Amino acid sequence: MSALLEAPAPSLELRQTQALASTLAPARAARRIVSGAQRAPLPSPARSASSAPSPSRSAGEDDASAEASRAARVLITAAVEVLLGLRAPNQLDRWTEPDLMDALMRRAGLAQRRSGEARRRGPVVRSVHTQPTANGDCEATVLLECGDRVRAAAARLIPRREKWVLASLEVI
């Protein structure tokens, strides 16, 4: 009879699949239609949903997310400066994967030959959004203001020896 009361533990594979599904497609709350009901007040701009701590996240996860966000801001800005010819590419050698570094070096050579005008101001970060992946990497999107243009950059950051390293970069 005791064998009937004990349920088998779910397999590790099932837990990983559920965690992956939850990060890819967040569940939506069901809508209820109630006649005559008043809407709840919207949150004030001073406290947005992104600044409020999530009850499911621990303090360690928030610290890791903040660290990934800071790394994304710095690394992507530096990479865009290299692409614009404002920074030497060898400054990113320790912070990028070898394949990406080769691509940045090629592109930086083109930018330095093309930019004969006076030095201009570097890119200004408008916003940074990071999302951890199931395998521990981090995907980041950054909006940058480069003079009179706004550019979007998407990157994948991977943890290497207690620091974030830029593995891939797409700039539009």
Rank of each mutant, 00 (worst) to 15 (best):
L20M: 11
T23A: 08
T23I: 02
L24D: 03
L24E: 08
L24G: 04
P26Y: 06
A27G: 00
A29F: 06
V34A: 11
G36K: 09
G36T: 07
Q38E: 14
R39W: 06
R39F: 00
R39E: 11
P41K: 09
S44I: 01
P45I: 04
A46Y: 14
A46E: 15
R47M: 10
S48A: 10
S51K: 13
S54K: 08
S56W: 12
S58M: 08
D62S: 13
D62F: 09
D62V: 12
D63Q: 15
A64V: 12
A64S: 14
S65F: 06
A66P: 07
S69C: 06
R70S: 15
R70F: 12
R70I: 04
R70L: 10
A71R: 04
V74S: 08
L75C: 10
L75F: 13
T77D: 00
A78F: 02
A79T: 06
A79R: 03
L84I: 02
L84H: 10
G85L: 09
A88Y: 05
A88P: 02
Q91Y: 02
L92Q: 00
L92S: 01
D93A: 10
R94F: 03
R94L: 15
W95C: 04
D99C: 00
L100V: 04
L104V: 05
M105H: 09
M105T: 09
M105D: 00
R106Y: 07
R107G: 01
L110Q: 13
Q112I: 09
R114V: 10
R114G: 05
S115V: 13
S115R: 15
E117T: 02
A118W: 01
R119N: 08
R119I: 14
R120S: 07
G122W: 00
P123C: 05
V124T: 14
V125G: 01
V125N: 04
R126P: 01
R126V: 07
